[in-house]
């Protein structure tokens, strides 16, 4: 579903060249739920932006759902759902439901299919209470659930989440996690999740990838990850050891 081969992305910053990502290769199979970890500035967001075609890689080959994202971005957009935890894709001054109607038209989703899907999402994400509320008046937790629904209305094969639980309280986090687990299990949606919240990883991801300085430092199951630093018992300590290289 996602395939990267020797992908690199360099930025010129005041004449120096910074390699945000280099020689990155990995494959995510359909139906997988993968956590993508790394310290700030490691290249997570750069990777995600290359996956959805926002950034063009400077080297290597990217394929998502069989498409080259940077060349077929608008075609891919119908097959991928993207949520940026730090910014909303909803229309700020309009009621949440209006954003959904607009997304239906932009993605050309059939009206009947849309109705069924929206009802389903309204129920599972508990959106019923604020569909008529302007997005700017929603709480962060409500908005994030709205953003998740918006990313899923066109029934994408792949869902890419960039820090979807950032700033949320424990209850909101729990409801989003439950939703994502069900989505992956019941609909078979492939999910790639970046987060700094290791609770997300522990509760959701069967597979974990860790990126550091633009390179893949670890790729395996959660158990494998814990085994990299057997002297530690908590995932926080294991990941800290991995990030700081003291493991």
């Amino acid at each position: 579903m996602i395939e990267l081969n020797d992908v690199g992305r360099a930025f010129k910053v005041k004449r120096a060249v910074v390699h945000a990502v280099r020689d990155l290769s990995f494959t995510v199979a359909p139906g997988e739920f993968v956590g993508y970890l790394g310290p700030n500035g490691a290249g997570k967001s750069t990777t995600i932006k290359m996956l959805c075609g926002i950034l063009t890689p400077t080297s290597g080959r990217v394929r998502v759902a069989g498409l080259d994202p940077s060349r077929r971005r608008t075609t891919l957009a119908r097959r991928i759902g993207v949520v940026f935890g730090q910014r909303t894709t909803l229309w700020w001054d309009l009621p949440l439901g209006d954003s959904f109607d607009l997304i239906r038209l932009l993605y050309k989703v059939d009206r009947k299919v849309f109705r069924v899907r929206l009802d389903e999402l309204t129920q599972t994400l508990d959106l019923g209470g604020f569909l008529r509320t302007p997005v700017r008046q929603l709480s962060l937790g409500q908005r994030m659930r709205g953003d998740l629904a918006a990313a899923l209305l066109h029934a994408p094969d792949v869902l890419v989440l960039d820090e979807p639980t950032i700033g949320l309280d424990v209850v909101s986090k729990a409801s989003i996690r439950t939703f994502l687990r069900r989505l992956n299990a019941e609909q078979g949606t492939t999910v790639l999740l970046t987060t700094h919240d290791l609770g997300d990883i522990e509760r959701l991801c069967r597979r974990v990838m860790v990126i550091d300085h633009g390179r893949l430092g670890f790729d395996g199951t959660l158990d494998d990850l814990m085994a990299t630093a057997p002297e530690h018992s908590s995932i926080e300590d294991v990941v800290t050891a991995l990030y700081t290289g003291t493991g």
Binding site: K49, C52, G53, I54, R73, T74, T75, A77, R78, I80, V82, F84, Q86, R87, T88, T89, L106, Y107, K108
Partner: peptide, 14 residues
């Protein structure tokens, strides 16, 4: 600057 161009780029519209 605000990063909102990213959200336009993920939609299937130019």
């Amino acid at each position: 600057k605000a990063g909102t161009l990213d959200t336009m780029l993920i939609r299937p519209v130019s």
